[in-house]
Structures are given as structure tokens and as C-alpha cells.
Amino acid sequence: MIPQGKRSCHNFAVQSTLNTMKDSNGDLQHIRALMERSTRFLGLSGLSGVSAGAFALLGAAVAGRYLQGRPDLTPEPLAYSAGGQTGAEYWGPITFLVSTAMAVLASALLGAFWFTWRRSRRLGHHLLDRTARRLAWNMLLPLAAGGIFCIALLLHGLPGLVAPATLVFYGLALLHASKYTFDEIRWLGLSELLLGLIASFRPGAGLLFWALGFGVLHILYGGLMYLRHDRNDTATTP
């Protein structure tokens, strides 16, 4: 039996503990959201990936048709033409394929920027805020290194290793940048890396792996991110 006065005091204590618990739960959610929002760029749109993948497949189809029309360039010699090939018969096809790849890269980047810009604006994020800038820098540095490495491969007459090298460097860049954005990017990076490593042991199949990595994987992960994040935008924004 608790005396009258003591009981109300007891009730008050229970009540205030319950209130503190409720507040604390809200505080924790608040803290988690802030930590995530201040370190990760969450404006990335899944459609960016889908459009990049579509451009990559288009580019791969163009390159595939070109190679079909040039039966003299069987995959194997093109893959292992190491040493001494410096004439027009080497640089002609290389120039065509590299230009195609550059056109794909430019359209993919434009499309990616456009969709992400659109989504960021809708969410009220700034496309040039600190998280976006950090994400961009962490992507660009490994990619630039990969680009220079590929130029070296071409100059040394090893074009067959270019497709695996682009996949490996792109995978590492994504893996590195994934801590600044959605977790799916980490898995995309790992998949690209794995595909690139397999491709480096399959000479002559570079174009196929390239289409798989830059085309199919982008569309798959982009679609997944669209379903998981973009589609919930209207529900989460006031």
C-alpha cells in the first residue's frame, strides 16, 4: 500500500519517464536523419542510371555493327595486337571506337545530370551543395586515373584491355564514392568491378562485357533505385 501523497509522486515520475522516452525516440530519429543528410547526397535519381545504360547499349550496338562490317578485325588480333602496330590500320578502327565511347560518355553524363538535377530541384536539394560536390570529386579522381591508364593501353597497342580496365576503374570509383550516396551504388560498384575482372581474362569479348557493365547493370540498378527512392518522393516531401 502506497500512501496517497507518495502515489501521485510515483505516478508523476512514471509519466515524466514516459515523456522522456518519447522525446528520446524522436531525438534519435532526428539525429539519424541529420547524420545521413549531412554526409550523403540523396538527390541522385535512378533514372540517371537507366538513361546512361540506354546510351551505353546504343553505343555498343553501333560498335558491334562496325566490327561486323570489318571482318579483318577479328576480336583476337584486336585484343592482342601488342607491339609495333602504329599504322592507319590500327588507329583507324581505334579512333572510331574511342569516338563512339566518348559520345556515349557525354550523352550518359548529360542524361544523368539532367535527371538528377530534376529530382534534386523537386526535393529542394541544391545540386552543388557540399554532399554533391564531395560525391562528384570522389567519383572523378579514380575515373580520371582510369582514363589516363586507358590512353596508355591504346598507345602500347593493347586495346583489348581497355574494356576491362574501364569497368575495373569505374567499379572502384563507384565503390569509393558510395559512402557519399545511396548504398545501392556500392553494390553497383562491386558488380562492375567483378565484371571487369572477369572480362580481363576473356580477350576478345570486351564489347559484350562493356555492354553488360555499362548498359545492363546501369539499367538494372537505376531501375531498382528509381523504385526504391524516386517513387517515394511525393510521399516523403511535404
Partner: peptide, 24 residues
């Protein structure tokens, strides 16, 4: 809540400037 928020942001970031904190 504001102080809790400030510490949350600073716990996972290096230097953060005034404007970025204000917007976050």
C-alpha cells in the same frame, strides 16, 4: 533539438561552415 542537431552533423563531418549548418 538544435544543439543535438549541431552535434549530430559535426559527429560525422569534418569542418562544417555556418551556412551549411543553418540549411541542414
Amino acid at each position: 533539438r538544435v544543439r543535438l542537431g549541431i552535434m549530430a552533423v559535426l559527429a560525422v563531418n569534418d569542418w562544417v561552415d555556418h551556412a551549411a549548418l543553418r540549411d541542414l
